[in-house]
Amino acid sequence: MSGYLESQLIILCLATIYAYGIFLPAASGQLNLGAAGFITLGAYASAWFNASTGAELPVWLSVILAMMFTGTIAFVISFPILRTRGVYMVLATFAFAEVVAGIVINVEELGAAAGMPVDAHLDVTVIVPMTILVILFSFYFMSTRLGLALRSIHDDENVATLFGVNVRTAKVVAFTVGAMLMSLGGSLYGHHYNYIEAQTFNVLLSIYILLYVLMGGTQTAWGPLIGAAFFTIVPEALREIAESAGLTWLAEGRFMMFGAFIVLLMVFRPEGVMTRTLQDRLGGGLFRRKKQVLDETAANS
């Protein structure tokens, strides 16, 4: 694999992991604009656990400990944050990410504003399998009864409660597990590039990840994968085309096209690219079992 393709693959993998971290709470209707905060926690925690100036632990253990550390923080803050709804939750998670960035940039042990070098290096042979693992895990998670409960909460929280779903617990689990995935993504980022700066994980990153998820669609576990893949591959492919064909307007205009695409997608397909119905249609022969006898009412009306 060429160096260029490899670097693009890494970017895609990280975007996918982040996207699944935002997707899990979004599947239950909770919008988290704080991705950057959890990614920062994961990246810095793992770097510190691993660093010779820190705990000097092996890299795999550092990554796991970072996930547990981030998970604990997410668990604790999920209780107050999940009290908020709609635009308040968007703002609260956003505020959380700003607080994290503000703290990290002031801790001397973490390199403060200058950033922090990361010791152990993880390359594509680790990152790709980890990404596949995250994808498989997310598909499994959404297929469980807990996943069903989350999707029910997305549609109608009150009815889900009346059928015995513990809405609070389900939301807290989704939020916490999502944060742990983002932590994993952040750790992998740090160990791959071997240098982290709090400024890299800014609000723009949070916005883009939320966009991947909402564009891809929150109804099925395919959504984040499609969203992340589409929005990392297409702009890059357009750049490639523009360069080889010498189209300067395309090279400069591709992000505007990207923005216009977002606007139009929300007009024509507000549920995101992948919906439940589309999944069924595509899955057709593979997943759908024998057509059962349609009852008369359904046939008549």
């Binding site: 009864r145 779903v165 109804q219 439940r276 069924d280």
Partner: peptide, 14 residues
Amino acid sequence: RLMPHLSTVENVML
């Protein structure tokens, strides 16, 4: 008050 985005069977499984 069925869940509109769930299938028939998934609604029953809820």
